[in-house]
Design a protein around this nucleic acid. Structure first.
Lengths: 125, 125
DNA sequence: TCCACTGTTATATTTACTATATAACAGTTA
DNA sequence: TAACTGTTATATAGTAAATATAACAGTGGA
């Protein structure tokens, strides 16, 4: 698992770690029940304090994505992919609703929004 | 002009003020060349420091939405409709970037997102 | 000119958050 | 027992947000 963190970022380090692991779990780069690096090991790799890693793990556990067992380690929680996907679709729907509201209030045509959509989704392929 | 701020919010107070005034300008609740409340007056209303209000006004001036004249006050800048539209397009772009990120992380196809897009933009016509 | 308003600037302080270092404690397993 | 695991407590440093206070300067009416 390769995590890249930036201390010049406006996102806190613990959050960057949290996001990276969350993404890895969603992409199945981290499988169910797979053990995560120990807080100290990952802290060493990233040259940061183990407390910062622990903070990230704590957040992930609170969200239900990993399970930590004292003395053993932290493990990817059994996941419900359908549930995650449903939740994600809902998030996307909410964001698109916001887009619609802004475009409507500001007289920005559907066509213009669609063009932005195309650009963003194509340039990242 | 009624601005509601929350000190329990994760958004800084100066940013909440900034956003509220920005929205008021975009919605034409604040007209061109209209005088804004003085930093001290608004600070009194909101029971906060005038420095926090000044911070918000400074940001708005830097963005070109208001114009401050020492000794006189702060005024809504002559509206640059292009500027506002650019801002709105930027907001939409940011939201679409979020949509893209979520779809990418969650392995949701562009096609699925496009379908959601169609539904939302069509059902409101 | 005086006064009451306007914005500006400088300094110091408080609070919260992020991140760190260090040490000690406890569970797991070979 | 040794070497891992996670946990907890304490103290410290840096930063950002917000505050309080005071002094300074421009505007405009009485």
């Amino acid at each position: 698992m390769d995590i890249i963190i930036s201390n010049s970022s406006d996102t806190p380090i613990f959050k960057q770690i949290e996001d990276a692991i969350y993404e890895a779990i969603c992409n199945d780069d981290l499988k169910e029940n797979e053990m995560l690096p120990s807080v100290r090991a990952l802290a060493n790799d990233l040259k940061i304090s183990f407390l910062t890693v622990k903070r990230a793990y704590d957040e992930l556990e609170a969200s239900g994505f990993i399970k930590t067992i004292p003395g053993k380690g932290s493990f990817v929680a059994p996941k419900n992919l359908d549930l995650i996907k449903e939740e994600k679709l809902k998030q996307i729907q909410d964001l698109l609703e916001q887009v619609y509201q802004i475009s409507k209030v500001s007289n920005i045509s559907t066509k213009e929004v669609q063009e932005l959509f195309q650009i963003i989704f194509e340039e990242n392929e």
